[in-house]
């Protein structure tokens, strides 16, 4: 478990990137921090491995204040995957993946064997092991980045817009792989993105952030979709209209709101909450909030 308690970060130039941020990030779940550019996501993430130290407040990992942990050692125990992979361009794929284990003193031979196995895990052919990063496609580089983040078998994996720079088809692939990996490996993943679809797809817990890392809403994707607490959230999750796959209909009902997921064609795709176990079907013009439709354009809505 990672806990932020009233954490603020003011950069030397006066920018207050994070303002009184408090959050509990549960273990073995994926928590997604989502918000537009500049709202403080990267700063939050980098405070977890002490690449950035908070100006005030406390961050604990499993109850231990991380300001008491030596940064270099903390970082070797926390996986980090960033946009543009951040691979070391002068190291072959295998050496990139084996970096942290070797820093931690694992014998090179052992580290390389483990690295090859990790290439399998992230779905890369072992024949790529001797290539340099520049010889890989963007999607392959990101997979290597993920393999490297996992190499020391950390409990915590931090991912900063890892798929932001790859093209949409590859991105979908990588997102599905991430879901599979998370099922298999059971890490505490903190994932940063500005893409709300990605956040809802990957997150067990989604934190929608406004400027200064103020939490606009937090909850499971279903909770947020069903009940945006503010205009800001409604707009944010409804951004990119016409590209949404599913819409939520909130239907007036004497016992409360029933929520129906409707696809782009207006067909019901599912019910989120039906108080009383009954779905009102009478209302012909549901008040609808649009949510997602990228794939419906590809024909599989």
């Amino acid at each position: 478990m990672i806990e932020f308690r009233s954490v603020s970060k003011q950069y030397p130039d006066g920018t207050r990137a994070v303002d009184e941020f408090s959050l509990i990030i549960p273990s073995r779940k994926t928590t997604v921090l989502v918000g537009s550019s500049g709202c403080g996501k990267t700063t939050l993430l980098r405070m977890i491995n002490r690449m950035v130290d908070p100006t005030s407040g406390v961050i604990e990992i499993d109850g231990k204040d991380i300001s008491t942990i030596e940064p270099v050692h903390l970082r070797r125990d926390v996986g980090y995957v960033m946009q543009n992979s951040g691979l070391l361009p002068h190291r072959r794929v295998i050496d990139n993946v084996a970096t942290v284990p070797i820093l931690k003193g694992v014998p090179k031979k052992q580290a390389h064997e483990d690295a090859l196995a990790l290439l399998d895990t992230v779905g890369l052919d072992r024949s790529l092991a001797d290539r340099y990063p520049a010889q890989l496609s963007g999607g392959q580089q990101q997979r290597v980045g993920v393999a490297r983040g996992l190499a020391a078998n950390p409990n915590i994996l931090l991912m900063d817009e890892p798929f932001g720079a790859v093209d949409p088809i590859v991105r979908t692939d990588l997102q599905n792989e991430t879901l599979r990996l998370q099922r298999e490996l059971d890490k505490t993943v903190v994932f940063v993105t500005h893409d709300i679809d990605e956040a809802f797809l990957l997150g067990d817990q989604v934190i929608i952030l406004e400027k200064g890392a103020h939490i606009a809403q937090q909850g499971s994707p279903e909770e947020i979709l069903a009940n945006p607490v503010s205009e800001f959230v409604a707009n944010f999750i409804g951004a990119d209209r016409g590209k949404r796959r599913l819409a939520v209909s909130s239907i007036a009902h004497p016992q409360g709101d029933d929520l129906v997921l409707v696809d782009a064609g207006g067909y019901a795709a599912g019910v989120i909450a039906a108080p009383g176990g009954q779905l009102a079907t009478a209302n012909p013009t549901p008040k609808s909030r649009s949510i997602s439709n990228k794939t419906s354009q590809a024909g599989d809505a």
Binding site: N49, R75, Y80, M82
Partner: peptide
């Protein structure tokens, strides 16, 4: 040296001394 690469080296847990010799110096090559 690409700041992204430098930051990712820091994130991996290189000590400043090792990071200089193993990452920044060779990339300045």
């Amino acid at each position: 040296v690409d700041p992204d690469v430098r930051q990712s080296a820091t994130a991996l847990g290189y000590s400043p001394w090792t990071q200089f010799w193993a990452v920044e110096f060779p990339l300045a090559g």
